[in-house]
Amino acid sequence: MHQVINTFFSPHDFRVAFPNVWAGFQVNLKLMVVAEVLVLILALALAVIRGLPGRGARPLRALAIVYTDFFRGTPLILVAFVIGFGLPALNVHGISSRSNFTYGVIALTLVYTAYVTEVYRAGIESVHPSQRMAARSLGLSYWQAMRYVVIPQAVRRVIPPLLNDFIGLQKDTALVSVIGVAEAALQSQAYSQTYANFTSYTVAAVLFVLLTIPLARFTDHLILARELRERATAT
């Protein structure tokens, strides 16, 4: 018991490891924010492309499907390796001499865009066709109907699942440590290797959990609020 506490939960090591792990965790936060913003924008664009009507848009729709299938199926760690080690090896000016942070953002964005595209798509499809019909019958164009009527309703509906993916993204920022981004997991590992003590991992875990809990509760709150509202309008 004493052994376990000393190895994983030593107060002394907690204090000593904290500054470096905290510094690393701030990198996680940055990765998360930058990737999330990119994901929200790109995924919405892809979801809209997937829903384009008509035969002319078929190749675009197909591309969007191939993209989501591919990146939903590929483990993030593989994507991170390919981006983080592969792009520098290419020796192409402009893409081969970026920071590891940038490669981390790219890998996270590529993978999470695929997930979030599906979330948006479900939201767009959940808006009843009569809404689009009502908008078009006012003389709004296809894009205006999407912009003012369909997408606002779709986004509102998918906020809880979006937040869930957001939580997943938060945690997966630790995975890009494999390409040498000096984030919390990597800092914890460095500490544990230097001092033969694993409390640093506990520090990182605590930080991640503390970040996740408010988001998880907020998601619950949104879901509950919506249920109440829907029950109120149903009566």
């Binding site: 009569s130 809404q131 019909m133 009502a134 908008a135 019958s137 009527v149 606002p152 309703q153 509102r156």
Partner: peptide, 11 residues
């Protein structure tokens, strides 16, 4: 055009 189900924009 006005529809049976109103189809107002709920948001």
């Amino acid at each position: 055009i006005v529809f049976q189900a109103y189809n107002l924009f709920p948001h």
